[in-house]
Design a protein around this nucleic acid. Structure first.
Lengths: 150, 150
DNA sequence: TATATTATCTATCTGATAAGTAGAGTAAGT
DNA sequence: ACTTACTCTACTTATCAGATAGATAATATA
């Protein structure tokens, strides 16, 4: 379960690129082509992604020479959770534990006492506790601490 | 992201059914047909699922009259994490943070400093902290506490 | 105003996978 | 022998991820 799609991963990579750029020169436009080549993202696919981010208020853009994309807010105001939701939909592992997209399973006879729901509710809380509290900025500044897989 | 498949959900429902039954009468066989009708699971599909659970050491079975499926261990010895892994594969949101199935993305040039990986590593820890520490038994006995979606 | 530059839109393609079904075969109890 | 139930093989159908192609619209600057 829980695997990030390529699309979402590309979106995050592009946003971190823009966030790093924002720290040096806020709100200055970056070219699709530059992001694509720097982050190894297929250009045409990235176009779709950036547009979707713009339509969801995460990015702003300008056409023509000197144009490009930039973050609509400062990196510390953009949280990872809402961004992932744009591409993946609800973060809850199952809809009966989603607040906004709540829907019981069609085969469920007693939502209140479902054991699967009990576990998945805890999982959901754990996931949101990370994603909805981590901003783009938080991640950039935490990149010194090493990862030990366990 | 992170949505449980129907198959996995059915597997868990079947296991909780067997766990409840085990509490009353340990290791007594349950019929596929009974589980299917009690939990609203398509019978043929459930056959596939139970078989897979047996092949992975979670269930035992006996054929013929008086046969059926039962838990291979007590409910407190069976953890949710490993069960979900059988059907969903790695629980990590992305393979570069998985211990057993570690693999960097093909488009990644510097795994150690990848920001996406930083976030997803935290998410993985949070998920495992729930699923690998929760047994079937834990869930059954916690089913009094109500769920408040937030 | 012309032209180069850059984002935006419309449409389509391919392969993989979830979810489920059909039907025959095999083993165990009574 | 007969019933019951587990086991295996093969298939179907629909949806979606992951792109790509080609044309169009907006902007800056010479």
């Amino acid at each position: 379960m829980t695997s990030l799609t390529q699309k979402t991963k590309y979106a995050l990579k592009a946003l971190f690129y823009l966030a790093r750029k924002d720290q040096q020169e806020p709100k200055s436009p970056a070219l699709i082509a530059d992001i694509a080549s720097s982050e190894n993202i297929p250009r045409k696919f990235l176009e779709v992604i950036l547009l979707e981010l713009k339509h969801n208020g995460v990015l702003q853009s300008r056409k023509g020479k000197g144009g490009g994309y930039w973050l609509s807010k400062a990196p510390e105001e953009l949280y990872v959770g809402p961004i992932i939701r744009i591409f993946e939909g609800p973060l809850a592992p199952i809809l009966c534990v989603s607040k906004r997209h709540y829907q019981p399973c069609s085969d469920c006879e007693d939502v209140e006492h479902c054991s699967v729901r009990q576990v998945m509710f805890k999982v959901k809380l754990a996931i949101l506790d990370v994603l909805d509290k981590t901003s783009l900025r938080d991640v950039l500044s935490s990149s010194e601490s090493p990862i030990i897989l366990s």
